[in-house]
Design a protein around this nucleic acid. Structure first.
Length: 882
DNA sequence: TCTATCACG
DNA sequence: ACGTACGTGATAGAG
């Protein structure tokens, strides 16, 4: 028995959109209408068990109805962008489910459905129309029923001839007459003014049709009604015509084109996964009898390689590309031990204990051959771990971790198991689960290790094409392949190189600071009249505010705030406060820097090898861990001395530091095209002085240091996504004063003002912002009804293109630097990056050439509408290279 | 494990 | 009226 289901795509999507909250998935795509639509669709497919399915959509804006009545659908609100952008998504879902969908220029979805319903009726096929629109009731016949959505989307009411009769006392065709008389405000069909559903029904019950009603105007009850009907005869007839659904739409397909075959869950799951349709995912996987959709419990067949049988696997190394995963004892690949590695092609999975890999000559050659393509998770860590085990490697053309990051840099979880969860219809136990964490950590061995590891490499092979496609779809391929991947290779070199630390110098400094701390401690105990743990904010708070009775200016969730900005305000009130501030400083220097750096210094080479994390910061910046070398003190002289222990690794070498001057404000000048700001940079002015002149309306000579300091804070504010409150906090002024500063700034730099407004608007429309090199950051909260979340997202929208473009620029310079140094035949090496600064070490005689090369490469990394300026300094220590 | 604090750009 | 500056990482204390 055939069963035809006709779905009114627009109507269901509308219903779903307004019935559900404005959901977004991780990448900021609105999904509520698509989700509701799919829920409805699944339910219908399950319950109706159709043999033929079709979804009809409205095409374009102008239909034949507009031709006859210009105002047709005139009053309808414009479809909100959050909904219209979901239509392509809905169509993609239908395509994946292999359900045909149609739209036809000049016609509405109704007309396609009407025509198919007529065909179904003629051929006596049981037909169900799914819609939220009462108009379609006119199509009901002996064979055709309408499934009408009620509140929400999952609830529906079936209308057949009997139901329509019971509800309206009409035959289906009379629904047209009903519309003709009462009109339809949503479609802007006028009908007869003053005639609503009640009157219209009464008239139709008596006369049967619009024409008959009009023919009997004279007999109609009530003077008003007579008048109205009499005056609007033509309008009533036209309304009826507008409400009539076409049954002769010229369609270029027939029943045989819309045959429905139940979909394969395995094909649909990845899309649902991507859209985060979790409950639907569960639903389809259950239908699949839990075979394989979510759980790839299916054991992988892998080959555990021993020294003896390496030769028979050499053929695997001739594959176009292989995935490689190196298993380590900890994430700190500069120290971690490698237990084993695994190789995967599409078909074969090979497990190699580290000794076997080291002893297999053909593998070593393959690994070091740059023309042999390899895919890995965290290429940098992989290459360093391999190198520490005597294995040189090259030819890594894909990094799964980096790809996942570039696709969505806001995502906090780029572990392989997280990526698999998001991008594939599979799952992988997280390393923490397999190994346990903290004290429970254990090591894996033998078969267990082999199974876990080969499963990871197998996953890499499956992830790569999925990620590649997603990069391409979002226009991120260039950024990924030409910037991020090359940068990761530069970082590998930098980390491998490491930076030399003067052990004795560090110990010396430690002693000095410890002595100072001791003195401060006893002084503080004296002043407090008791001993307590100064490092404990809780105990400190009790001393300051309870015992000494200082005023409480700020509180935290847990009690009194003792942060530096509070203490600074309290300093005049009690001698102890200043000592505490000083104590904090010294204590920080000892614990974080002296002791922290000492712990990370390798006894082997006397160097520190930080890890530059490339897949953390949402703006595209790098971060540095174990230890963090991007936050070595500089602002206070006392802390700055820490920099004296960072020295060149060889004799007669020096350090060279090159930093971009005002890169973020220059980027802002470029992005905003603000004439005043551009001019300021072209004339090489001190930008904070210039801002002070504009904000305070004074001449250059009249700018005081106080004004310059305030102007500097305003500039920071602009870069961070200005708010009066934020500025008032940082300058210790009232919000009103801060707001005035901002206003005067924006008046002086109208281009910046417009840019800030435009970028927020664009973010609201697209759901994301981009940097100069098209790096993308999604802002799911940008349209949030929650003021806080929305404001945060708006500031992020303003800040990310600036901070992110600056990150793009220095990354580009780093990539270019590699070849520039080679070309100039320099042995200088890049050691560190600190956001807007690069630090090199080089033999003394190279410094002059190096300065020139470094400046040129950094300044010419990209072309902006303002010049980029780089300052260079050299010295025997990092402290001296200032 | 979470919170407060503070170091950097 | 809402209550924030943007982006990070490390440490110590407290639960």
């Amino acid at each position: 028995m055939d069963k035809l289901v006709l779905i009114d795509g627009n109507s269901i999507a509308f219903r779903a959109f307004y019935a559900l909250p404005l959901l977004t998935n991780q990448s900021g795509t609105f999904t509520n209408a698509a989700y509701g639509f799919t829920m409805m669709l699944m339910k219908v497919l399950e319950e109706e068990k159709p043999t033929h399915v079709l979804v009809a959509f409205d095409a374009g804006r102008v239909t034949f109805r507009h031709t006859s009545y210009g105002d047709y659908k005139g009053k309808r609100d414009k479809t909100p962008g959050e909904l219209s952008e979901q239509f392509p998504l809905i169509k993609e879902i239908l395509d994946t489910l292999e359900i045909r969908h149609f739209e036809l220029d000049g016609y509405e979805a109704d007309d396609i459905i009407g025509t198919m319903a007529c065909a179904g009726d003629e051929q006596k096929i049981a037909t169900t129309i799914v819609t939220g629109d009462k108009d379609l009731l006119q199509l009901v016949t002996e064979h055709v029923t309408v499934l009408m959505t009620k509140k929400g989307v999952s609830d529906a009411q079936r209308y057949d001839i009997a139901e329509i009769d019971q509800r309206y006392g009409l035959k289906p065709k009379q629904i047209i007459d009903l519309k003709g008389l009462m009109g339809d405000s949503s479609d802007n069909i006028p009908g007869i003014p003053g005639v609503g559903e009640k009157t219209a029904l009464k008239l139709l019950h008596q006369y049967g049709s619009v024409e008959e009603v009009l023919a009997n105007v004279a007999d109609l009850p009530g003077k008003k009604l007579k008048e109205r009907v009499g005056e609007n005869k033509a309008q009533a007839l036209m309304s009826k015509e507008l409400a009539t659904i076409m049954c002769e739409t010229p369609l270029d397909f027939s029943l045989s084109d819309i045959i429905y075959r139940p979909f394969e869950p395995a094909k649909v799951a990845p899309l649902f996964k991507k859209l985060e349709f979790k409950s639907l995912l569960k639903r389809i996987s259950q239908e699949d009898e839990e075979s394989s959709v979510l759980s790839v419990v299916k054991e992988l067949t892998y080959h555990l390689l021993t020294e003896k049988d390496t030769s028979k696997w050499e053929k695997l190394l001739r594959e176009d590309q292989l995935s490689l995963y190196v298993e380590m004892s900890s994430p700190s690949y500069h120290r971690a031990e490698v237990s084993a590695l695994a190789l995967s092609s599409d078909h074969d999975h090979l497990f190699l204990p580290i000794e076997v890999a080291q002893g297999w000559e053909a593998f070593r050659e393959w690994l070091a051959d740059p023309s042999k393509k390899k895919c890995a998770y965290d290429v940098k860590g992989t290459q360093i771990a391999l190198k520490r085990n005597g294995l040189d490697s090259a030819g890594f053309t894909f990094d799964v971790m980096l790809a996942s990051y570039i696709i969505n840099p806001s995502e906090s979880a780029h572990e392989l198991s997280d990526i698999v969860e998001r991008k594939l219809d599979a799952s992988l136990p997280a390393d923490d689960e397999v190994y346990g964490k903290g004290a429970k950590r254990r090591s894996l061995q033998g078969e267990e290790l082999a199974a876990h590891l080969t499963r990871k490499t197998e996953t890499l092979t499956r992830l790569q094409p999925v990620l590649e496609e997603e990069l391409e779809e979002s226009g991120l391929s260039t950024l990924y392949f030409e910037l991020e991947l090359p940068v990761s290779h530069v970082l590998t070199e930098m980390e491998w190189q490491g930076v030399k630390v003067d052990k004795e110098g560090l110990q010396e400094l430690g002693k000095l600071l410890s002595a100072q701390l001791k003195e401060l401690t006893s002084k503080i105990y004296d002043l407090a009249g008791t001993e307590f743990n100064i490092n404990s904010p809780k105990q400190l708070g009790e001393i300051l505010f309870d015992k000494l009775g200082l005023p409480v200016l700020k509180k935290t969730k847990t009690g009194y705030s003792t942060s530096a900005d509070v203490l600074e305000k309290l300093a005049p009130q009690h001698e102890i406060v200043e000592e505490i501030l000083h104590y904090r400083q010294v204590s920080k220097l000892i614990s974080t820097y002296v002791e922290g750096l000492m712990k990370e210094r390798s006894e082997e080479d006397g160097k520190i090898h930080t890890r530059f994390q490339q897949a953390i910061a949402a703006t595209g910046r790098l971060s540095s861990t174990d230890p963090n070398l991007q936050n070595i003190p500089i602002r206070m002289e006392e802390g700055r001395r820490i920099r004296k222990v960072f020295i060149p690794s060889r004799e007669n070498w020096l350090l060279l530091a090159a930093d971009y001057s005002q890169i973020e404000l220059r980027v802002l000048a470029h992005l905003s095209a603000d004439e005043n700001l551009i001019e300021a940079f072209h004339s090489d002015m001190d930008i904070h002085t210039k801002t002070a002149m504009d904000v305070f309306k004074v001449k250059e000579e009249e700018v005081t240091s106080q004004m310059r300091r305030q102007a500097k804070a305003v500039n920071f504010g602009i870069v961070y996504g200005i708010s009066d409150y934020g500025l008032s906090q940082s300058l210790n002024i009232t919000r009103k004063e801060a707001a005035e500063f901002i206003e005067r700034y924006l008046e002086s730099y109208p281009g910046v003002h417009k840019y800030m407004e435009d970028i927020v608007k664009k973010a609201k429309k697209d759901g994301y912002v981009t940097t100069m090199l098209e790096r993308r950051r999604y802002l799911p909260d940008i349209n949030s009804p929650n003021f806080n979340r929305r404001s945060f997202a708006e500031r992020t929208a303003m800040n990310t293109p600036i901070q992110g473009s600056a990150a793009d620029i220095i990354k580009k310079a780093m990539v270019a630097m590699k070849s520039a140094l080679d070309e100039a035949d320099l042995s200088a090496t890049l050691l560190l990056q600190v956001h807007d600064e690069l630090i090199f070490e080089a033999p003394e005689e190279e410094l002059e050439t190096l300065s020139e090369v470094v400046c040129r490469v950094m300044e010419e990394a990209v072309e902006l509408s303002v010049p980029l300026r780089v300052d260079v300094d050299t010295g025997k220590t990092w402290y001296d290279a200032k």
